[in-house]
Computed example of a mutant assay.
Amino acid sequence: MHFPPLPSALLLALAIHSGVSAAADEKVVEPCTVASSAGSFYDLRKLSILPPKDGKKPGKNEKVDDWHARGYDYPSNFTLNICEPVVGGLEHRPVGIDKDLAQNVSAYYETGGKIYSIGQQNSNLTLRGRRLVLQYTDGSPCGGENKKRDNGDDEDKKSAKDSRRKSTLISFHCDKDPLATAPSLTFVGASPDECSYHFEVLSKDACIGSEPAKQGVGPGAVFAIIGVIAILVYFLGGVFYQRNVAHARGWRQLPNYSMWAGIGSFVKDIFIIGTSSCARFLPSRRGYSALSVSANGNGASRGRGRGPEDENRLIDQLDEEWDD
């Protein structure tokens, strides 16, 4: 038997296996999630407040408004969202923020009838040791509320000249209290120049979790791909060899045609034997036309198909028996 050369198939399969493995190794980082080198995984997507979808009612325990933190000794309270822009509409454009960027504000406070952004939307979590933090940057210019400004766009232009802008740092802590029902967000403090604001979030969602299994090409699928490629190369290479070297035509172009033909005949014989064996167990059709033994010992039909001579002979026999 002539087999087509398979080194090319194996090389091609190995190349595909390497490409699939490389693609599987590339981890796609989901927004608002982070994994450490030690295997710890954090997922804070449940803390993100998303705007309600059209025609869809929120769940019973689903939060639909932004997170709020009391300022205590700070003269303002704060509104924030986690990894997403705030969903509550801003009454005014934040000081020093372009109109196109106003919809990406993730944290702000309001004082003196003006809104000050303390950070733009960001969903990249960071692990600093055992601390899980999220930072917002590019807020309103620092110290803008302490300066005398004109009204209108001139105020925004003067504020934009300040290169230092407000930012927010949020640290997350695991809540191990079994009685806790909802996360809590607390304002920790602000820097003296009112450029940096620090918050803490206590939540069960900030505890270490297990990374969800990613749908990808597994080892079984890789070997299946290799097998399919090897079979294709085997048949294509065999057809090329049988046609051009052995000068075969028709079905004989297939590699190892005699072997495949023998397998087909074997399967056919097994099928015939199986059907013949099953036919023995089928009930036979017997009726009034079954064969019976006539008076002269010959097998004759007592039903349909009986000739006149047979009927006369049977009548004579019955008459003789009646006379006796």
Rank of each mutant, 00 (worst) to 15 (best):
M1D: 14
M1H: 11
H2W: 06
P4C: 13
P7L: 10
L12G: 14
A13L: 02
L14I: 10
I16C: 11
G19W: 10
V20E: 14
V20H: 10
S21E: 14
A24Q: 13
A24H: 07
A35M: 12
A38D: 10
S40L: 14
Y42T: 09
R45F: 04
L47S: 10
L47D: 09
D54M: 06
G55V: 06
K60G: 11
N61F: 05
A69H: 06
Y74Q: 11
P75Q: 11
C83I: 04
C83Y: 00
V86W: 02
V87Q: 01
E91M: 03
E91L: 04
H92M: 04
H92I: 06
I97C: 04
K99G: 05
K99D: 13
K99P: 01
Y109L: 07
Q120V: 05
L125H: 08
T126D: 11
G129H: 07
L134C: 00
D138K: 12
G139D: 04
S140N: 09
P141Q: 01
R149W: 15
R149L: 15
N151R: 08
K157V: 12
K157I: 12
K158P: 03
S159E: 14
K161M: 05
D162F: 03
R165G: 03
S167G: 10
S167N: 09
H173R: 09
H173Y: 01
C174E: 09
K176H: 00
A180D: 04
T181A: 15
T181Y: 13
S184P: 09
A190N: 00
A190M: 02
P192S: 12
S196F: 07
L202H: 15
L202T: 12
G220Q: 05
I225G: 00
I226H: 10
G227I: 09
A230G: 08
I231S: 05
F235W: 00
L236P: 05
G238H: 02
V239H: 08
V239Y: 07
N244S: 12
V245K: 15
A248Y: 08
L254K: 00
L254A: 07
M259W: 14
M259T: 13
M259I: 13
W260E: 06
G264S: 09
I272F: 15
I272V: 15
I273N: 12
G274D: 13
S276Y: 13
S276F: 13
S277F: 06
C278Q: 09
C278L: 12
A279T: 15
P283R: 10
S289N: 14
A290V: 02
A290I: 01
V293K: 08
S294P: 03
R302H: 06
G303V: 02
R304V: 11
R306W: 05
G307C: 12
G307H: 11
P308Q: 10
D310Y: 00
D310L: 02
N312C: 08
I315M: 02
Q317F: 08
E320V: 00
E321L: 10
E321S: 08
D324Y: 08
